[in-house]
């Protein structure tokens, strides 16, 4: 695999530019502009006009997640992180929306850790975040929760607990 030549430079008044050419000769350029938006240009080899997309930082992060190979659904997204210092430990962070069926139950009631091995590490309700919720935390329909675990454990969680 040939090393990808990534060029980055500062454009005064505009922002930072990253550009690289793929093995097949296509060019991708990303600009982080000073006004906070991110523009991505792709130029197919042999073409003359690039196509461009402008993104907010949130949208750009989503795109980044997709490109790193994580699954993204409408309201649910996940990131897999590998830690080389821990014998290539791969953990996944996945977000879920609490379905009606488990509304009103606590983390303890549902025995999430015992049944699946996953841990709820954050809950977002009405735009407020609760990090490391206690076992007595009561879920409500529509809460967005962030769960950490291995991918098999998360699949178990989806089958056993996050069901409508």
């Amino acid at each position: 695999m040939s090393p990808m030549a990534l060029r980055s430079l500062n454009l005064p008044g505009v922002g930072t530019k990253y550009e690289f050419e793929t093995d097949k000769g296509d060019t991708v350029a990303i600009f982080f502009t000073k006004n906070g938006t991110i523009q991505m240009y792709t130029l197919q080899k042999g073409c003359h006009t690039p196509s461009a997309a402008e993104m907010t930082p949130v949208e750009a992060r989503r795109l980044g997640n997709i490109l790193t190979g994580a699954i993204i659904e409408a309201d649910q997204e996940s990131v897999e992180v590998a830690f080389s210092a821990l014998a290539d430990l791969r953990v996944t962070l996945h977000s879920y929306i609490i379905p009606k069926a488990i509304s009103g139950k606590t983390i303890e009631d549902l025995r999430i850790r015992a049944k699946t091995g996953t841990t709820v590490i954050a809950v977002s309700r009405n735009d407020k975040n609760i990090v490391n919720p206690p076992p007595s935390f009561v879920f409500e329909t529509g809460d967005a929760v962030l769960v950490i675990g291995e991918s098999d454990q998360l699949r178990l969680l989806e089958r056993e607990i996050m069901v409508d």
Binding site: L11, P12, K17, F31, A52
Partner: peptide, 23 residues
Amino acid sequence: VTSLIENRKLMMRESETIIWLMV
């Protein structure tokens, strides 16, 4: 600068020239 960003012209090679011209 605003028009280069808004008209999505940042990738053109001329854009870099134009930006440095402004400096």
